[in-house]
């Protein structure tokens, strides 16, 4: 019997899209019973959202004052406490899940499959290695509990036709206090979130300055798109770090990705491989970005972007 526990990722009272994608992945395993656990100091609102997800059987509320912030060291012992009921434990392969799940696995004395991109059976999964330049199919020993993180770019969000029950679990595990949350900062803006946006416009080093990077914001706003940047643009200080797209930044899968002045280093291409339509605007016809682009436009971005604005 496959029984899957999913650790919900949430922020500001909202269930993250990454959790819905993790549910979709779990639902691809035949005859799986899927439960979600919500760790929070006040879990009701998030649990209610999680209970609406299709294929979820039960949502567990794990409430404790120490769960106000997602700290791996604090969550992990509580997950171990409930692990005995499950054959699989999943979380999204976001910084949240990447931080947490190996700690859970080690406490259980088992290994982990990171970044599941395809399900081929209850214990057979495909994951990327070498920055997505190869894919490995793995068989996990069914004698062991399977801990995995799910690559969100590979799955669609679960629909919301469900009606799962909501239960409370009381935490008996000792929660360590050796790790404490201090602060969190982010760029605040009204644009769609890069990770979940249907359209993304991204700029590279060719923009030349933080001021010129505003051209990217203007195009994004015209398209209702999220904004991304290459590592080179981030390193040059043109864009904030959380906008970075690529193996060392965010891996995204929008319907439309427009790369402006991005040459297309391997590590950047890894982050956009799953985009449905890739558009590249670059003045260098030899740029590797054109190898993956569905539509390429060779030209100077400072000429092309104003024209594009006119025609949109």
């Amino acid at each position: 019997m496959t029984r899957i526990l999913i650790i919900a990722e949430h922020a500001q009272g909202k269930l993250n899209l990454s959790t819905r994608k993790t549910v979709s992945c779990a639902a691809q395993i035949a005859d799986a019973e899927i439960d979600i656990v919500v760790f929070s100091n006040d879990a009701q609102e998030i649990a209610t959202q999680a209970a609406q997800l299709t294929s979820v059987r039960c949502v567990l509320k794990a409430e404790h004052p120490n769960f106000a912030h997602a700290l791996a060291a604090t969550y992990a012992p509580a997950i171990i406490q409930m692990a005995s009921n499950y054959s699989h434990i999943f979380a999204p392969s976001t910084t949240f899940g990447k931080d947490l799940m190996p700690r859970v696995a080690a406490l259980l004395g088992v290994g982990q499959i990171s970044d599941v991109m395809a399900v081929e059976g209850s214990h057979r999964f495909v994951r990327p290695i070498y920055a997505g330049n190869a894919m490995v199919t793995l068989d996990a020993d069914p004698q062991h509990k399977l801990v995995a993180t799910i690559r969100t770019a590979s799955f669609q969000p679960a629909t919301t036709n469900g009606n799962a029950s909501i239960e409370s679990v009381s935490i008996s595990a000792t929660l360590p206090t050796h790790t404490r949350f201090i602060s969190h900062s982010e760029e605040h803006n009204d644009r769609p979130d890069l990770q979940s946006a249907a359209r993304v416009v991204a700029g590279g080093r060719a923009l030349g300055s933080a001021e010129n990077f505003n051209l990217i914001y203007q195009l994004a706003d015209q398209l209702g798109a999220g904004v991304g940047a290459s590592r080179a643009a981030v390193d040059a200080g043109y864009a904030a770090n959380e906008l970075q797209v690529g193996q060392t930044g965010k891996i995204i899968a929008p319907d439309l990705y427009i790369a402006v002045g991005i040459s297309g280093a391997i590590q950047h291409l890894t982050g956009i491989k799953d985009a449905r339509t890739i558009v590249a605007i670059n003045k260098d016809p030899e740029a590797p970005i054109f190898d993956v682009a569905d539509i390429g436009l060779v030209g100077d971005l400072f000429t092309v972007l104003p024209e594009l604005a006119k025609h949109l």
């Binding site: 490995v136 793995l138 491989k273």
Partner: peptide
């Protein structure tokens, strides 16, 4: 715990068009 069944290259994207 894990056995490699196979390692494969990622599916290639179809060649795009230039405008």
């Amino acid at each position: 715990q894990f056995k490699t069944v196979k390692v494969t290259p990622p599916p290639a994207r179809q060649k795009g068009v230039l405008v």
